[in-house]
């Protein structure tokens, strides 16, 4: 029983990481109509920037927190720059070109990361506050993973509040169904697009920083996470934030229990789930009917 609970918690922490990254991806898609294939590369940038911050700070205990604050902002600024300088030139083009376009970013960013940080794999140490595990409802659990779960829930809550209760959030929701009309009603859509793209990149950056102490960083890790984002989006429904949440949760659980019970085929499980969803409910949990 305790074991299962531990697995559940592990699954939750993974699910929250996945949610943070994939919600940015789906948000960008729903407002801008562009699937940013380089989203995973933004995540990777988050990881490497966190490492750099940690290196600069040396052994200073707060380096993780500074990284968590700074790195996602840098990623967001980079995202905003890319949207402003390049992406907005191709909104009028067909989706396949937008695809191809963001695809080229992966090549560029991945190689740049390789040039700047090298192929040497690195990992940052956990902030001291998380050095000891916690006793949580009777099980001993990594305090850092618990922190990830709480932070993920917090971001999910804030996003929900932003989208449902603020005027800017309403504009985002309106733009996700009808970009043109939002512009005709006087909303500065170019600015909106830049902001939403930056927000998506920021979320990817947060996910990256959070994963930095858990996993060794390598150039190309962006592609692994983007595939996970795809799976989340297919399962949850393209453009649906609620869908991203529940799909990330499902996938997190599937992976955690998969690793625990059927480690040989764990990797294929998420694909299997995606295949099943595509057969029984092609538009995903909360997806709109495709236009």
């Amino acid at each position: 029983m305790e074991d299962q609970f531990l697995i559940l918690l592990n699954g939750l922490s993974f699910a929250m990481l996945l949610f943070l990254v994939s919600v940015g991806f789906t948000l960008q898609f729903s407002v801008l109509g562009v699937l940013n294939l380089a989203h995973g590369s933004f995540y990777m940038l988050g990881v490497f920037l966190a490492i750099t911050v940690a290196m600069f700070m040396g052994n200073y205990a707060g380096n993780f927190w500074i990284g968590l604050l700074l790195a996602p902002l840098l990623v967001a600024a980079f995202g905003a720059f890319l949207e402003w300088s390049l992406l907005r030139r191709i909104y009028i083009r067909d989706v396949l070109f937008q695809y191809l376009f963001t695809y080229t970013w992966i090549l560029i960013i991945d190689d740049l990361v390789l040039m700047i940080w090298g192929a040497r794999y690195s990992i940052i140490s956990l902030p001291p506050i998380f050095s000891a595990p916690v006793n949580f409802l009777g099980v001993t659990f990594s305090s850092y993973r618990l922190f990830i779960i709480l932070l993920g829930l917090l971001v999910a809550g804030l996003l929900w509040f932003f989208l449902q209760k603020t005027k800017a959030g309403m504009i985002v929701r309106a733009a996700s169904v009808n970009r043109e009309m939002v512009g005709a009603l006087g909303v500065n859509t170019p600015l909106l697009f830049t902001a939403v793209f930056a927000l998506g990149a920021w979320l990817a950056g947060v996910g990256g920083v959070l994963v930095a102490p858990l996993q060794t960083a390598y150039a190309g890790m962006g592609l692994d996470i983007i595939v996970d984002c795809f799976i989340v989006v297919v399962i949850g429904g393209m453009g649906s934030i609620k869908g991203a949440f529940w799909a990330a949760l499902t996938l997190g659980m599937l992976r955690a229990f998969g690793i625990a019970y059927v480690p040989q085929v764990e990797m294929a499980l998420s694909y299997l789930l995606m295949a099943v969803i595509l057969i029984i409910r092609p538009r995903g949990f909360f997806g709109r009917e495709e236009a």
């Binding site: 309403m170 929701r173 309106a174 169904v177 009808n178 043109e180 009309m181 512009g183 005709a184 009603l185 006087g186 909303v187 500065n188 859509t189 170019p190």
Partner: peptide, 23 residues
Amino acid sequence: PPYRINRLGIGYVPEDRQVFPDL
């Protein structure tokens, strides 16, 4: 761009209504 035109004072009511259905 349309938003600047709107802000100068032109309001547009499109042909097929185009309300935001989820709002």
